[in-house]
Write a protein that binds this DNA or RNA. Structure first.
Lengths: 355, 355
DNA sequence: GGTGACGTTGTCATCGTCAACATGACGCAG
DNA sequence: CTGCGTCATGTTGACGATGACAACGTCACC
């Protein structure tokens, strides 16, 4: 009497008490292990038994309990992903790349975001995730200005993208240097005396790289390096700085650290009646979908975010399975310089800006 | 001799054999349950013991095994999320909303995408997820044209967004009807004899709603209903259809089913030398960040994707905890009509299009 | 000094699955 | 008819954490 039937769901959480392997076994009149064998493609089960088990499973709507399976096997089939502001173009496309690559490998992705890209926040997020069930961890654009050591669970494979953590962890990054160089050189080749820069926020590692490379390229060409303007990646910041850029007739070429700021800038120049590219050339970065359809179509540096995502997954899984330390620690994904119509040969700006 | 020490990690997967609660207990000289108590904020543990356990945990880098915890408690602390083409604006912003809301509730999000928004694909994705450890499921924009029943695990709370599955599952959707009506009415109020429509793909439920509402609004106003153009949400499709729209001098007002297509269209009209809004008024849908910075700034219907994401999470958790069936089955999130500069009063188009 | 209350810590059992080993049935060669 | 291999199926136990309950020590109070 005491062992008969299933106990009422008194103790465990308010969970969905789904059918377990034992229920199926009872209904099919077999041992639990047989059900397990059927559920897993299985080795040697007679067709008759298999059939009986199968219909019992269907009848009860049985789905294997992943927690139990993970507990038993020690692996979860999931990769953790920490991102910041994931609705932004680069982020969301990288996330998409990660998710697609993970799916191809039979993994799902556990996503958490951080409110601010500080070291503490990322640590907290990683901890939150490691309390979750994950086999590896990907951190996208951890724009920590203070690269304190992240307190991560030991033995958890970690791969980061474009961040100041590159030195401490395996990493995937875009070839920002080549992209930036191509962009700046393109403008110089067009005859512009120098190239101004609308940079990203100071705490962003990619922004720093683009800024540095821009500076170096100008220096290498023996040009004067003007003071850069500091934006925050948003369209609005590009738009607002546009007023200052319009007011300075020295500026004939601007390399923007991303396409959004370039778009905001172009809009502002429109309003100030400055013709792009006749009076002022603009280059962006990222190649967001709308870049090609702006007016004029934006010359920019294309990043292959999908590939970055795929590489991130590949590296995590490599570490997961191999365990070897002889693995590549840093993969660089090439960028492509795309010339459209927002750049043109140098001509001095003559017209006074309209206020 | 046989029972002493831990067995070499022969049997279970190649997993990271992290320290277990037993290891910590041994090191601290206490029982496992005490470690458990310390790990969980705990009730009654003496400061001395707590301290000892804490340092043992730190020393071993202990992190609780979530699989075991989930197995015991029956809940996973994770919400499954199925999305399609998640790098698109609406999708990525909704995902961001979901992730933020989930974090606030202490949940993480398990993300999978589907290659195509078919019923089969979504079912497969959901199954893949339910093999994962999730407590509830959110399906974003399942644009199934054939709303066959999804074969989902029983008792798994499911909430969908903007899809043809609305009838079968709890749902959150934008108030597309009001938004569309406001957009079309705005153009009619400006004196345009009728309003053309650049619609989304036929298999998209939101596209259908916008199309239907546009049609009804025109009918209610007693206007002729022109044949709609069919796009596929992309900038490119808007751009390509732009040639035809430019060629038809009857067209003076176009309601586009999303901002991307509107942007593509505007670019095309630029090239055909048709002035927006003087000769042709355009309204978009979504209010993507760049909409405000296009030239001219785009009049559009703003969707509150963040709120949609938050509502999705709220409804899933409600179902998860309450279990009551007396819960709201359908939440509508308001849209906002944002008037900018891409619409103007009606004037007949006189100039012949260029080419 | 004995008794009970309380606060701390431990024992046992359990969640669902699956690897390892054990058992049983059957067939076939010698 | 015996012995052994083969295949299908069953039994046992362990993965790690933790709820229920028990046991222990300490202290206050009568």
């Amino acid at each position: 009497m005491s062992t008969e039937g299933r106990a009422a769901p008194t103790s465990p959480g308010p969970s969905t008490s789904r059918a377990s392997i034992a229920d199926v076994a009872r209904l099919a009149g077999v041992a639990p292990i047989t059900v397990s064998r059927v559920a897993n493609g299985a080795e040697s089960v007679s067709p008759a038994t298999r059939q009986r088990v199968q219909s019992a499973m269907d009848k009860l709507g049985y789905a294997p309990n992943h927690a139990a399976r993970a507990l038993r096997s020690g692996s979860f089939g999931a990769i953790g992903l920490v991102a910041h502001r994931l609705a932004r173009t680069g982020e969301s496309r990288t996330v998409e790349g990660v998710v697609e690559a993970a799916r191809a490998e039979g993994y799902t992705v556990s996503l958490v975001d951080v409110v601010a890209p500080t070291s503490d926040e990322v640590t907290a997020a990683a901890r939150r995730l490691s309390h979750q069930a994950i086999d590896g961890l990907i951190i996208i654009r951890a724009e920590t200005s203070t690269p304190a050591t992240l307190a991560l669970p030991p033995r958890l494979p970690v791969v980061v993208s474009d961040s100041s953590l590159i030195r401490r962890h395996a990493a995937v990054s875009s070839d920002q240097v080549s992209g930036t160089r191509a962009a700046v050189q393109h403008l110089l080749d067009l005859g512009h005396p120098t190239v101004h820069h609308l940079s990203g926020p100071a705490d962003s590692s990619p922004a720093q790289v683009r800024l540095e490379t821009w500076r170096e390229t100008l220096r290498a060409a023996g040009r004067t390096v003007p003071e850069p303007w500091r934006g925050d990646w948003t369209l609005q910041s590009g738009y607002e700085l546009g007023a200052r850029i319009a007011a300075d007739p020295q500026v004939t070429a601007v390399f923007c650290a991303n396409d959004e700021m370039a778009a905001g800038l172009m809009r502002s120049l429109h309003e100030h009646d400055i013709a792009v590219p006749q009076e002022l050339s603009i280059v962006g970065f990222d190649d967001i979908p709308v870049a090609e359809y702006l007016w004029p179509p934006l010359t920019t540096v294309r990043q292959d975010f999908g590939r970055i995502g795929a590489e991130l997954v590949r590296m995590v899984l490599e570490r997961l399975r191999g365990g070897d330390d002889a693995l590549a620690r840093h993969v660089v994904v090439p960028t492509t310089f795309v010339i459209r119509a927002s750049t043109a040969g140098y001509t001095p700006r003559t017209r006074a800006p309209r206020s």
